[in-house]
Every structure is written in C-alpha cells, then in structure tokens.
C-alpha cells in the first residue's frame, strides 16, 4: 500500500496523491517517510521536499517555506506557508 501524501498551503491543496517515499527537511535533520511510518510530528525548515512516486523512479523536488509535517495513520501531511 503506498503512502498518502498531501501538501497544503493556506491558499490551496497543492498535492494529494499516493506516493512511494517522501524526504522532508525537518528542523532537526532530514527524514524520509515510507508507508506505515509511526505517528510523528515535526517542524520543517525552509528547503526542498523530495517526492518519489515509485520505487527506483526519480524524485520530484518541491521547495517549501514555513512548513510543518505530520505523519498519522492516514499518511503524511505537509502544511507549508509558501510552496514553489
């Protein structure tokens, strides 16, 4: 089962899809989220989120600012004030 990833800004829902792996630049270091990750909440520093849609594929890079990540049973949600 893939990981459900959502990227949300105040103005709109930027992304909501099932992906393989997301690497998030947390304030205390980068972390990767695969499906089945334990519930986890972290602040995100300004940087680039990398999204792998499938294993072995290439990553899509999304620059974010003022972010916050939450991993729950439903998947990964990144709230960012500015995207792109």
């Amino acid at each position: 089962m893939p990981l459900h990833f959502e990227l949300v800004t105040p103005a709109r829902l930027v992304l909501s899809e099932d992906v393989h792996l997301v690497v998030v630049p947390g304030t205390e270091g980068e972390f990767g989220v695969l499906e089945g990750h334990a519930p986890f909440t972290a602040t995100v520093k300004d940087g680039v989120i990398r999204v792998w849609r499938s294993a072995g594929g290439s990553a899509e890079e999304i620059p974010v600012k003022g972010g916050f990540a939450e991993v729950s049973a439903k998947g990964l949600t990144v709230l960012a004030e500015h995207v792109g």
Binding site: G26, F31, A38, P39, F40, A42, F68, L79
Partner: peptide
C-alpha cells in the same frame, strides 16, 4: 483521535510555539 503515541521533533512545546503564530495567520 486514535490515542496513538506520536513522536515530536523538536518537543511539543517548541512545535506549539512555532505553530501558534501560523495558526493566527
């Protein structure tokens, strides 16, 4: 919600302090 143990990085208070201005915004 589920009452699951959630890990925080950094700790709850720091996150909350950072999120409150955003919530206000």
């Amino acid at each position: 919600s589920d009452g699951a143990v959630v890990e925080y990085e950094p700790d709850e208070e720091t996150i909350l302090a950072e999120l409150l201005p955003r919530y206000l915004r």
